[in-house]
Design a protein around this nucleic acid. Structure first.
Lengths: 233, 233
DNA sequence: GTCTATACATAGATAGAC
DNA sequence: GTCTATCTATGTATAGAC
């Protein structure tokens, strides 16, 4: 099984990298033009937004809070986004982009349903570990978003589930998994993966590492999908 | 397995019953005294609060929203609670009281770890089905609560988990379950149970009933805990 | 580019008429 | 018991100095 350290070397999800991508995607809306300055301040803004929002909710975070947390004045903040809604939108979209890219890469690099399933589970867990505040924020704030973005969030949730469904169905056809309801199985796997970043405080206080957790989830899923003895193929 | 209909007959969790309990617990804070009037209006207030909050967040729900949704004026609302914080507090505390009572009842009525585990899983799912908006609200708003109540919410989450841990450990000692990490197992079971009320929209659109879901979860858990063949006892 | 100062809307909460 | 009207604080957003 891939370790977290190996995963980090494989994928490019540093804070700097993410902020550069966001800058590239939103260059038209950001009034400041000097790249290194933008990247530095975007990093501060996102750090503060995630930290404050994850503690008391995005809606409850005032721009005065954000100003204090990021070290920029309220006036300066509005050089990086034009409204609070746009700020949340930048965070959500970027998170989705990265998730899709990384998971697709991980799965396509694997051969056969059994390995693909492992890759999707481990990849999801590691990515959510590296970007925990982002994942937590996306989950918790999804329902409070404007309509258009809420739809995108739902679509994204279902797309991630579909990835698992396809792998499960293929595995079933090849006889490496026993017959189960693929959508319920995929939903349950996702639920357990989400628990990792939603209850991060719990696992941290118990000193459960993401590798421990990944091994546990893999064991559970493998036992559930193992063909009943005598029924193989 | 208990059906949802049987469960409903067994436990007393009607809206009226809940509001009567809340009235009893908060009689000192509620200025209106005529019981049937209080119960009727509390029901309206809680319905509207859960409905609006679950759509866009409790903090984003203004008292003007709540006034419109409940059909009471803002002045009248303040006859039933003294602040918005107190309102959320009443909802959370009542939800916890009921959950604890119902789950304890369900589990103590069962004999032996295998049946107790089933009772806890099915009881949790059915209760969250009957009180879905309540459960969803409690989960989503927990982190936005004032400190004291956030602590109570965490304690409640851990207590529910401990219930599962104790059953799992007992089952292991008696040899009916194989050896697993009881806390990770309990956490995973909880995660799957929570998915039922957190993603209610998804399961509803797929016409998955709570009984279907319960059977699926029981199957998963049983396969995971089944002693490896040849290792029984 | 960033700041301070401020405009304007909306929030929670209450007073006093009915 | 409930309403309307209103107080005060706080919210988002912007204008204009530096």
């Amino acid at each position: 099984m891939l370790t977290l350290a190996q995963f980090k070397n494989l994928v490019n999800v540093s804070k700097k990298q993410i902020c550069e991508e966001i800058f590239a995607e939103n260059a038209d809306k950001i009034k400041v033009k000097k790249p290194e300055r933008v990247v530095k301040n975007l990093a501060r803004i996102f750090d503060a937004t995630l930290s404050i929002s994850n503690a008391k909710g995005f809606q409850a975070m005032s721009l005065r809070d954000l100003s204090e947390g990021s070290g920029l004045s309220m006036g300066a903040l509005y050089s990086y986004f034009t409204s609070k809604d746009e700020l949340v939108s930048m965070i959500q979209e970027q998170g989705r982009r990265i998730t899709t890219r990384v998971l697709t890469d991980q799965v396509t690099a694997a051969d056969g349903p059994a390995d693909q399933l492992k890759a999707a589970i481990v990849g999801h867990l590691y990515l959510s570990e590296v970007m925990q505040p982002w994942f937590y924020f996306s989950y918790m704030e999804a329902k409070n978003l404007p309509k258009k973005q809420r739809k995108e969030a739902i679509a994204s949730e279902l797309a991630a589930e579909s990835l698992f469904v396809r792998i499960l169905e293929q595995g079933r056809r090849q006889g490496v998994f026993r017959e189960t309801d693929p959508r319920l199985t995929a939903a349950a796997i996702k639920a357990v993966l989400q628990d990792w970043y939603l209850k991060r405080w719990k696992y941290r206080s118990r000193k459960v590492t993401v590798e421990n957790y990944a091994r546990f989830v893999l064991d559970w899923v493998e036992r559930f999908l193992a063909p009943d003895s005598g029924e193989a193929t």
